[in-house]
Computed example of a mutant assay.
Amino acid sequence: MDKKVQQYTKLYIYEIKGFIRDCRSIKIKGYLGNWPESPYNYLFFLEPVDSEIEKWLSDQGGLEVTNKFSIDYSDWQQVVHRTHKVGRFLILPGVPDGFVADTDTCERTGVYLYITPCLVFGSGLHPTTSGCLAAIDFLYGEEVPKTAIDVGTGTGILAIACAKCGTEKIIAYDINPLAVECARDNVRRNNLEAKITVKEGDGILNLEKSDLLCFNLDEKSFRCLIKEVDLREFRWSIISGMLEKRFDQLSQLLPSGIKIRWQQVNKGWLTICIQGKE
Rank of each mutant, 00 (worst) to 15 (best):
E193Y: 10
Y40F: 13
L250E: 09
A179V: 01
D185N: 13
K68I: 00
V79P: 08
D248S: 15
V49D: 12
V144F: 12
K3W: 07
D72E: 03
K4P: 14
G166R: 03
Y14E: 05
G268W: 10
D72H: 10
T153N: 10
K3M: 05
Y14L: 05
L253A: 02
E208Q: 11
A134S: 15
P36F: 06
R189I: 00
F89M: 07
R24V: 00
L231W: 01
Y8V: 02
L192W: 10
L192D: 14
P177F: 03
L254K: 07
R82M: 12
D230N: 13
P177E: 07
L133D: 03
F215A: 08
K55H: 02
N186T: 03
D202I: 02
S210N: 08
V265Y: 05
V187M: 13
E47L: 10
D150L: 03
T116E: 13
L113G: 01
L254N: 14
S210W: 00
C214P: 15
T66N: 12
I274L: 01
Y8I: 04
D137I: 00
S123N: 08
A134I: 00
F215R: 07
P145V: 01
E64P: 06
G110N: 12
G33K: 09
V5N: 08
I71D: 12
V80Y: 11
P145F: 05
A135D: 08
Q7D: 01
A101I: 06
R223K: 04
V65N: 10
G166W: 01
L192P: 15
N186I: 05
Q78V: 01
P117I: 00
W76E: 09
T128C: 05
S25P: 06
A134Y: 10
K245Q: 14
Y40L: 04
L231E: 06
F222S: 00
K85V: 09
G98D: 11
P145I: 00
T153V: 05
D2V: 04
Y14R: 06
T147I: 04
Y114N: 05
I149H: 09
K220M: 12
T153G: 08
M242Y: 04
I136L: 03
G94P: 11
P127D: 07
D185A: 06
L254H: 13
